Amino acid sequence: MSLVFRNSAKRLPNASVVLTNYLEQSKEPPWTSFFVKYSSVIDDQRGRSHFNWKVGNSNYHVLRSGCFPYIKYHCTKRPYENLEVEDRLFYILKIVNLGFPLLLYGLSAVFMISYKEIVKTSQGEVYIYFLLKEDKGSMN
């Protein structure tokens, strides 16, 4: 019986795949900011806070934070820069404040989220969540 259950278990997509697929399906927007539930993905970007992410013809500066029960992404289309110093600084700040501000942000987001979209991956569809519906292609 456990063999049947194990074979039928759904494999979750990596968070990085959801990030890439959303940026592609949104036609490489100038910016975006969204949440994805930890329970919907494998967190393959754990420990990364500020980094470059290449999608198609675009490079994005990604600010990423774990804010339980979500992972929060804020992406801005920008030229490649070395972001190692900023990445380490954000990581240290998260450790110093024990993650409490991010926990509070995540818990309050549960009540503030007003819009969701589906991101298609090879492992299935994943919902991502927004505080407000975004105007696709808007510079603000």
Results as ranks from 00 to 15, higher is better:
F100S: 13
Y38T: 08
E28P: 02
F34A: 00
K120T: 07
N57E: 09
S58V: 14
R46N: 11
S49D: 11
I71T: 08
S65Y: 06
S114H: 01
V41R: 02
C75H: 11
M1S: 13
R88F: 06
R46W: 11
I92T: 08
D44N: 01
A15L: 15
S39A: 14
Y70P: 04
D135N: 02
V62P: 04
K37F: 01
V119A: 09
Y105K: 05
V18S: 02
T76R: 14
W31E: 05
S122H: 05
M139W: 09
K27F: 09
I92N: 10
G56R: 04
G137V: 09
K94F: 09
N59Q: 15
V18E: 02
L83F: 05
Y115D: 07
R48K: 05
S58G: 12
V17F: 01
R88V: 14
Y115E: 08
Y38I: 10
N140T: 15
L98E: 06
V85C: 07
S114R: 00
G99N: 04
K116F: 04
N140L: 09
P29F: 02
N59L: 15
I128W: 00
T32N: 05
E117G: 04
S108T: 14
K27V: 14
N59S: 13
E86L: 14
F130L: 01
W53R: 03
K37H: 12
L12F: 02
